[in-house]
């Protein structure tokens, strides 16, 4: 069984927000919903040694997802391949998962009343395709793949580069990894 993960190479990300737009288009999101924003840290430092980092944020598809534990209706689920998703018809919009997620990755759709989130484009992944944000990133700052496959680029990056996980101290075991410069 695969264990999907995403690596963000912040050295490559230029903060163009193409991934954000692509995600919204693919998922037909209302105007007030974003699954994957790109934040900017900086500029920091003192001239001429300045730096600025763009941080693409998504659902971290945690191995120990607090959102799944918090969901009273079993709408929030984690597949065996690690993808965390919301089964829309079961969601009652109680926001328990929204409050439980330390990454702010979940958002209520005010038209449907349900909570939605990034699901790694599981419909595309099941067909052997890449998530739409990864496909769209022209800087190749996003890398998606199977972390259990030693030949995958994701495996090589996670095990070869100095990657970090956001809020790792909370013990949620996020499966989104970041490479800093």
């Amino acid at each position: 069984m695969a264990r999907y993960a995403m690596v963000f190479d912040t050295r490559r990300c230029i903060g163009c927000h193409s991934c954000t737009v692509a995600c919204r288009t693919k998922n037909e999101l209302p105007i007030d919903m974003i699954y994957n924003p790109v934040t900017t840290v900086g500029p920091t430092g003192v001239y001429p040694k300045l730096s600025m980092v763009h941080m693409p944020l998504i659902c971290m598809h945690c191995d120990n997802p607090p959102c799944v534990d918090a969901c009273p209706t079993c709408a929030s689920q984690r597949r065996d391949d690690g993808i965390v998703f919301v089964e829309d018809k079961k969601c009652v919009g109680c926001l328990a998962c929204v409050m439980a997620c330390p990454y702010g990755a979940r958002v209520k759709n005010h038209e449907s009343g349900a909570v939605q989130k990034c699901d790694f484009c599981k419909d595309r992944v099941d067909e052997g395709l890449l998530p739409f944000c990864v496909l769209t990133c022209h800087q190749k700052a996003r890398v998606f793949g199977d972390l259990d496959d030693e030949t995958s680029e994701v495996y090589k990056l996670v095990n070869g580069e100095r990657t970090v996980r956001l809020l790792a101290e909370l013990g949620t075991e996020p499966y989104a990894f970041y490479i800093y410069g």
Binding site: D69, P72, T73, K90, V92, G93, A96, S112, A114
Partner: peptide, 17 residues
Amino acid sequence: ELGRPFQSWRVFMNPKA
């Protein structure tokens, strides 16, 4: 308070929550 109040019965479904 629920986004879908008419499906509130579903909150009884996950004994782990």
